[in-house]
Design a protein around this nucleic acid. Structure first.
Length: 822
RNA sequence: GCCGGAGUGGUGGAAUUUGGCAGACACACCAUCUUGAGGGGGUGGCGCUCGAAAGAGUGUGCGGGUUCGAAUCCCGCCUCCGGCACCA
């Protein structure tokens, strides 16, 4: 007898059988309930890491569970194959990025298969394949035609390390999200996606994200950053031009004692002439530019400004106020100009103090009043004062009335401003989807005609840093203009890889389709995604881009819904010794080595068991061994019963109390595991199966006549319940127990609630809320009986002797609480 | 500053959905059996304090509150973590 199972042979055997039987290949079938479980696609960096193993094992447990529940399950995978790291690695090794990437995909695919994840490999997709990026380009062209993709020259985030531009979402605390190096500002002409066009929808449709973590919703809300306010136009003394400002506190406008423009504001730039003021301003603007965006927007940065020499008129009261420019006003936000109300805004207050500008109180608190020269700004809502006809109104009412007034007078309007910026998608690198545009000196920017797509990324032996590498390939660059046939230049930037991954999960439904990006019927069959699993680090990158893309696709008539994902699950990271695994720290655990030593099933079990899926997991070699031991313990049990004759528990003999207890435990476990899988509590589901096995061992203890039948039934149940977590082991077990079919489509067991019900209940006796004693009773015992039994309990009696019973609380089948006074 | 989350044995965690025996399951540790040894396996113990034991007291970050009863609900505070932040 083998007291250890041969995981290497077992796992290989079943992986082979699954592949031969095309077990996980699915087809659209509208007659069946369907389920789409998706995990964030991996970047082919070289090898799977434990974080992937956790992510994909989580998804696989659900895919297998849903299959056994009879659903048609789509469980696909692909590769986020374009991107900088591949290009950098290729440069380092002197090989083409494509070879590097394809080799990595091959390696990682093998690793995936060795883990036994139930993917439909016929739908495998790599974003770097021309069949895929053809449609990424197609989307770009459609977006260009709709005005959603446009070229704009302006300040962009530049990462020196990556030698390319980054989107706002890819700048974290002023540093590159990928390598952490500091990001600087550059003026470049770049392609952008007009995601701001959808800002409101992205915000409003969050209601439709029923089962998304609040955390992600809040992060997106913060990121989109809607503020409701009012735009007001302040005329200049020339009477022709005016400065538009945006404010959320129009109720304070009578306290505006100056205006402040961003140093990049056109009016400031226009004033940089040869006059004395102009020269001083030039100096100032240069200084601010040198300061850089990052240090300039730090909160503790000293406020600096300079008077522009010009004045504007407050349209509400006709007062003439000076116009300043200062570092703390940003061109990107609002209109790049603010009205400064020092009495009611802390920043304006500090600035006014520093430059001796007037401070005018116009809002008084509900109770009491502010001193004429306050020590700090009063920024709360209150009651208006010294504001003409608006005096005496509450801030809230005043805001409404004042917007109406401004609107009627034609110098202002209600306005909504967002923090969200348009998505900069140009990248000055080689390994990405070529932007399908052509620049013609006569016709301007012209999209590549759809029938000419894809614009194939030329193969090159190696790339170099600096500039867009494609620009060095004359054969690629020089093309006739599609409109006038004259000489023209191809766009040589490539797209941000986040564009590629914004629609990959649609392609899975139509992976082989070659006349459109997606087949509408296939999408209709599978969407929305039922469950999407990935790390929370994408909360405001990928997860906002994919929502944006879906809305664009809807407006292109490709899909009929607003949101692509019904339920999002964000899993925690895998740590070792308290910190993220990384090569530089040298604390990386290799899945390959673990699989070699303990098997894929033990590894899968461990990553699911060791912590709740949404929390961070600390890697533990010992914990892994524990899971391995559990499988062996189950294996030994299997060896004990595998020869027993098949019979169901009901047959043969009357059920003993022991039999009923085991059967009860079994059905309770079925109920718990089912429930726990639905709510993504894989850790407690596995714990419940471990408990059940412990019960089986207890059951076997002592008298063992006539137990084989029930044992067998329970073991079969364990094989089914455990199979979403440890599929190879359970298939083997299933086969040993005499089944010739795969466990994959064997129906999930159902809990018999009758059998699961406890025969006796343990009633707790509390005295003044403290547990003092307990007794057992049959379920459904009457309240009166419970009370009587509790008061008759010897121990309870001695505790309440000589005391007055004030009250007795009876909770059916649970407890009796006797409240006594002295 | 604003918004949010989390604090439970030596460790990971369970019980929070529904207020009702706190510590399931596992790791580590201790004892013991099996084995030539190692490994593996079996059995028992394991929050803290007192106690040989039975048992008693105490205990879910801290302080209050609601309740017959609070890890769970409410208020205040502390610590850690995350998002946004000179956003007008």
């Amino acid at each position: 007898m083998n007291d250890r199972y041969d995981f290497i042979a077992t796992e290989e055997k079943w992986q082979q059988r699954w592949a031969e039987a095309e077990e996980f290949v699915v087809h659209e079938d509208s007659s069946r309930a369907h389920y789409y479980v998706l995990e964030m696609l991996p970047y082919p960096s070289g090898a799977l890491h434990i974080g992937h193993v956790r992510n994909y094992s989580l998804g696989d447990s659900i895919a297998r569970f849903k299959r056994m529940q009879g659903m048609n399950v789509l469980h696909p995978i692909g590769w986020d194959a374009f991107g900088l790291p591949a290009e950098n690695a290729a440069i380092q090794r002197g090989i083409p990025p494509e070879r590097w990437t394809l080799d990595n995909i091959a390696t990682m695919k093998k690793q995936c298969q060795r883990m036994g994840w139930s993917y439909d490999w016929t739908r495998e997709t790599a974003t770097c394949s021309p069949e895929y990026y053809r449609w990424t380009q197609w989307f770009f062209v459609q977006m260009y035609k709709k005005g959603l993709a446009y070229l704009r020259k302006g300040a962009v985030n530049w990462c020196d390390q990556c030698q390319t531009v980054l989107a706002n979402e890819q700048v974290i605390n002023g540093c590159c999200w990928r390598d952490g190096s500091e990001v600087s500002e550059r003026e470049l002409e770049q392609w952008h996606f007009r995601i701001t066009e959808y800002a409101d929808q992205l915000l409003e449709d969050m209601d439709q994200l029923g089962d998304w973590p609040d955390k992600v919703r809040r992060m997106q809300k913060n990121w989109i950053g809607r503020s409701d306010g009012c735009a007001v136009s302040f005329p200049l003394e020339d009477g022709e031009t005016a400065i538009d400002i945006f404010t959320t506190r129009v109720d304070t406008i009578f306290g505006a004692t100056f205006l402040v423009l961003a140093p990049e504001h056109p009016l400031v730039i226009a004033g940089l002439d040869d006059s004395a003021v102009g020269r001083r301003m030039s100096e100032f603007v240069d200084e601010i530019r040198r300061q850089g965006k990052d240090s300039r927007t730090a909160e503790d940065t000293e406020k600096k400004g300079i008077f522009t020499g010009r004045y504007a008129t407050n349209p509400f009261n006709g007062r003439k106020i000076p116009i300043w420019t200062a570092n703390f006003v940003l061109m990107e936000y609002g209109t790049g100009a603010i009205m400064a109300v020092p009495a009611h805004d802390q920043r304006d207050f500090e600035f006014a103090r520093k430059y001796h500008l007037p401070i005018q109180v116009v809002i008084q608190p509900e109770e009491g009043s502010l001193p004429p020269e306050p020590e700090q700004a009063f920024t709360e809502y209150g009651v208006l004062a010294d504001s003409d006809d608006f005096s005496g109104l509450s801030s809230r009412t005043a805001q409404e009335k004042m917007v109406e007034f401004a609107q009627s007078q034609g110098f202002g309007e209600k306005r909504v401003t967002f923090r969200l910026r348009d998505w900069s998608v140009s990248r000055q690198r080689y390994w990405g989807t070529p932007i399908p545009m052509i620049h013609c000196p006569k016709c301007g920017t012209v999209p590549v005609p759809e029938q000419d797509l894809p614009v194939v990324l030329p193969r090159i032996e190696s790339t170099e840093l600096g500039g867009s590498p494609l620009a060095n390939l004359p054969d690629f660059v020089n093309v006739p203009c599609p409109e006038c046939q004259g000489e023209a230049r191809r766009e040589t930037d490539t797209m941000d890889t986040f564009v590629d991954s914004s629609w990959y999960f649609y392609r899975y439904t139509s992976a082989q389709f070659d006349s459109a990006p997606i087949q509408k019927e296939a999408v209709r069959c599978w969407f929305p995604v039922d469950l999407y699993i990935g790390g929370v680090e994408h909360a405001i990158l990928h997860l906002i881009y994919m929502r944006f893309f879906t809305k664009v696709m809807r407006d292109l008539g490709l899909v009929q819904f607003d949101e692509p994902v019904g339920r999002l699950f964000t899993q925690g990271m895998v740590l070792k010794d308290g910190s993220a695994m990384s090569k530089s720290r040298g604390n990386v655990v290799s899945p390959d080595e673990v699989v070699q030593e303990y098997g894929a099933d033990a590894l899968r079990l461990f990553v699911l068991f060791a912590a709740p899926p949404e929390r961070d997991l600390d890697w533990s070699d010992r914990g892994l061994e524990g899971c391995f031991r559990f499988l062996n313990r189950l294996w030994r049990m299997l060896e004990k019963v595998k020869d027993a004759k098949a019979s169901t528990a009901a047959e043969g003999r009357e059920l003993s109390e022991q039999d009923r207890a085991l059967l009860r435990k079994f059905h309770q476990t079925v109920r718990k595991v089912t429930h726990d899988l639905e709510r993504m509590h894989q850790n407690t589901a596995i714990a419940a199966i471990m408990e059940l096995l412990n019960s089986v061992y207890e059951y076997l203890d002592g008298e063992d006549q006539g137990k084989a039948g029930l044992l067998r039934e329970v073991l079969e149940g364990i094989a089914l319940l455990l199979s979403p977590f440890a599929p190879h082991f359970c298939e083997e077990m299933w086969e040993i127990l005499g089944h010739s079919d795969s466990i994959t489509f064997t129906p999930w067991p159902t809990a018999d609630l009758e059998l699961a019900r406890e025969e006796g209940v343990l009633i707790v006796i509390q005295v003044n809320g403290k547990v003092r004693s307990r007794f057992s009773a049959s379920p459904g015992i009457s309240r009166d009986d419970m009370q009587t039994l509790a008061l008759e309990d010897e121990k309870t009696k001695s505790l309440i002797e000589g005391k007055t019973i004030r009250k007795v609380i009876v909770v059916p089948d649970k407890l009796v609480n006797i409240v006594v006074g002295s």
